[in-house]
């Protein structure tokens, strides 16, 4: 209230209209007191939320003695990339190899599930066929089911077809497990595709496959990006499936390698932190650059 009075006062005192305009503009741009308080609380909370992650980043670039003293002490801070170098070629779980393995598994897992998922989603959104309803419910069930439920069966399957402890084996498990939600998600999106487009194409003599390639896929491209981004984060971050299906030290994936960096007696925080930052930076960059698709996908995947 006082502020408004002072604006009014100054407005009558100042002769120049320009100056008055400027003053009001500044007054308006500055938040009112309760609003400023909300900004302070909001910023404080958001920063509080990332303190644990900042701790990890700080620990990754400091020697162990300084980490033990507390990463929040900034005085006399030594910045070193020794932790990264050491973690990269750590003897029992080299992060360099583990990162490569994670890429080799994640990229095909994402591409295959996106393509095959889109193909399967198309009939689900368009045509009647036997068992459609049943399949539908099975997919939802798999979406809610715990991954532990398929571990035993897949372990035996991969052993018997010789794909245990191989990239291909883990990729197949990821594709099979992701198929449920991908089909559901893309089917929901494709329901919005107008029938007329397809009918017009059919009149022009296009085959079903041509329609899929030239109409359905381009129409679904934003949803396909969302699926790919979310699936990428899930497969990259996955811990349980690699723990079950990847055993030899050459085939270990990055999330799996991290607990191995702890060491035996005293936890080497520098190594753990460096490995963690390497592993998490990839999904975080994907999130930062493709945020729009990630958020839209997350919201649509669960809210539809």
């Amino acid at each position: 209230m006082d502020e408004q009075h002072s604006i009014a006062d100054s407005a009558t005192k100042t002769a120049s209209n320009d100056e008055q305009g400027l003053r009001t503009r500044i007054e308006r741009a500055l938040p009112t007191l309760p609003r400023a308080g909300r900004y302070a609380i909001a910023i404080a909370l958001a920063l509080l939320w990332v303190v644990p992650l900042i701790g990890m980043v700080m620990a990754s670039v400091r020697p162990l003695s300084e980490i033990i003293d507390g990463w929040w002490h900034l005085r006399g801070m030594t910045i070193t990339f020794e932790n990264y170098r050491e973690a990269w070629s750590f003897s029992s779980a080299p992060m360099g190899r583990a990162m490569l393995n994670t890429f080799v598994v994640t990229v095909p897992s994402v591409l295959v599930v996106t393509l095959l998922g889109a193909m399967a989603a198309y009939p689900f959104s368009r045509f009647e066929f036997p068992l459609r309803k049943t399949l539908f419910f099975v997919m939802i069930m798999v979406m809610a089911a715990p991954p532990e439920l398929v571990a035993m069966g897949n372990y035996n399957t991969l052993r018997s077809i010789g794909l245990f402890d191989t990239y291909l084996g883990l990729i197949l498990v990821h594709v099979g497990w992701g198929m449920g939600w991908v089909v559901m998600f893309l089917r929901n999106y494709l329901l919005g595709l107008p029938d007329e487009l397809e009918e017009a194409a059919r009149v022009d003599g296009a085959s079903r496959y041509q329609i899929f390639r030239t109409i359905v896929l381009p129409y679904a491209s934003p949803a396909l990006v969302s699926v790919a981004v979310i699936q990428f984060t899930w497969v990259w971050n996955a811990f349980f499936f690699p723990m079950v299906f990847m055993r030899s030290s050459d085939s270990v994936l990055a999330p799996q390698a991290l607990p191995l960096l702890k060491g035996r007696l005293q936890i080497d925080w520098g190594l753990v932190a460096a490995g963690s930052v390497m592993t998490m930076i990839v999904p975080i960059l994907v999130f930062v650059f493709l945020q729009r698709y990630y958020k839209r996908g997350m919201v649509a995947a669960v809210a539809d």
Partner: peptide, 9 residues
């Protein structure tokens, strides 16, 4: 940010 971070991290 925490939700995009691997749960093992």
């Amino acid at each position: 940010l925490g939700f995009t971070t691997p749960t093992v991290v």
